[in-house]
């Protein structure tokens, strides 16, 4: 009897429609400029601001200040973290800090993609970083992370889809690639 009940449950689970994606507010993209952080960034709604600390192996034992701007729709989360790494010892480790950012992003799950990301700035060189896409561990969704470093600051853009939906894929790609370092231009 127990076996029949179990089988019935398994069959039901197999044929039951997938959980409906959570409805979230319509995305209204707008660029927000943060001149004090040297960046302008698109968000799909007005972001909330938090200050915090960023601590990793490469940064060292003493956590450094960071500012986080985020929009949380529940099933879709957009977050920009700007880390202050202007201290000389951190400037010396800038490449390693960027490499670690990429490493940590990949470690969050099963890597799906790891692509170059070039963003123009007000120099002839531009800002060169990476975008990493992972299937998060523990079935927590899909996340794209962009890691960029410029003038003593680490910029980490993260867009997470808790319930991956094809139509939201465009939004997370847009989020991690929509930043400007040329703040003189409107």
């Amino acid at each position: 009897m127990r076996r029949i009940a179990f089988t019935a449950a398994a069959v039901f689970a197999l044929f039951a429609p997938p959980l409906a994606a959570q409805e979230h507010e319509p995305l209204e993209w707008q660029e927000y400029a943060y001149p004090e952080l040297g960046i302008a960034k698109e968000f799909p709604a007005s972001p909330q601001r938090q200050t915090g600390k960023y601590q990793t192996e490469v940064v060292g034992e003493n956590a450094v200040p960071s500012v986080v701007y985020f929009v949380d729709f529940g099933d879709l989360i957009f977050q920009m973290t700007v880390v202050d790494l202007r201290a000389p010892e951190h400037v010396l480790r800038a490449a390693n800090i960027l490499a670690e950012c990429i490493f940590l992003a990949e470690s969050a799950g099963l890597p799906l993609a790891n692509l170059p990301l070039d963003v123009k700035d007000d120099t002839q060189f531009g800002v060169h970083g990476r975008v990493v896409s992972v299937d998060l561990n523990y079935n927590l969704g899909v996340r794209q992370t962009a890691c960029l470093h410029k003038d003593g600051r680490l910029y980490k853009m993260e867009a997470t889809m808790v319930h991956p939906e094809e139509e939201d894929g465009e939004a997370i790609a847009r989020f991690v690639t929509s930043q400007r370092f040329e703040l003189r231009k409107p």
Partner: peptide, 17 residues
């Protein structure tokens, strides 16, 4: 170059790709 080292590192990877 130290100040731009993160970008130079990323460029090394992008050029390899």
């Amino acid at each position: 170059l130290v100040a731009r080292s993160a970008g130079l590192y990323a460029e090394c990877i992008a050029m390899a790709e």
